[in-house]
Simulated scan of single mutants.
Amino acid sequence: MSDVTQTIEELDLDELESAEDFLTYFGIAFDPAVVHVNRLHILQRFHDYLAEVETLPEDAQAQFELHRDLLEGAYGDFVNSDARTEKVFRVFKQGQPVNVGLDSLLGQLHHAPSV
């Protein structure tokens, strides 16, 4: 685990490249299968949670724990849920998907055989 005597600003979080790196860095146990399917959603949710924090604690330990708690919460959101339900990205926030039947599409093509 990292040296928490540094402030989060001093830590080189830019070195962390994946959701697994972040989870490991903050000492959060995780299921690789959950992370594999939801890695971008977890990181985006973590970012969203951080954006809601108005003031970071001055104490390095408190900063570390806040980041850890927010990341653990972001990961936890996807343990028993999925990206479609959580709607992290805009594409999932748009209207309900429209189902278009193949026969409808083929009927619009002049050269397609009828079904």
Rank of each mutant, 00 (worst) to 15 (best):
T55F: 12
P32L: 06
L40F: 15
A33I: 04
T85R: 14
A112M: 10
V4P: 00
F92N: 08
E86D: 07
T24L: 13
A62E: 15
L50T: 12
F26S: 04
D82M: 04
L16T: 00
V115M: 10
E65P: 01
L106T: 02
H110A: 13
R45T: 11
L70K: 10
N38S: 08
S114F: 07
Y75K: 07
Q61N: 07
G76E: 03
E9Q: 12
V115D: 10
E52H: 11
I8M: 14
T24P: 05
L40M: 10
L13R: 09
H41F: 12
L56N: 00
Q94A: 09
G101Y: 04
F64T: 00
R90Y: 14
M1F: 07
T7L: 08
V37A: 09
V98C: 02
D82N: 15
I8F: 11
Y75M: 05
S114Y: 12
Q44H: 10
V37W: 06
G27N: 11
P57V: 09
L102H: 03
F22R: 00
G76V: 00
I8H: 03
H110K: 15
S18H: 11
V53Q: 13
V34Q: 06
K93C: 11
Q44T: 14
E72N: 14
F64A: 01
Y49G: 05
P113A: 12
F92Y: 15
G27Y: 05
L71F: 04
G76C: 08
T85S: 12
D12E: 13
A74M: 04
T85Y: 05
L56C: 02
G101V: 01
L50Q: 11
V100I: 15
K93T: 12
E86K: 15
L71P: 01
D31V: 03
D3A: 10
E65N: 14
Y75F: 11
V53L: 09
M1T: 07
P97Y: 05
L16Y: 03
F64P: 02
N80Q: 11
Q96S: 06
L71Y: 00
E52W: 06
L16I: 04
H110E: 15
S2T: 12
E15P: 00
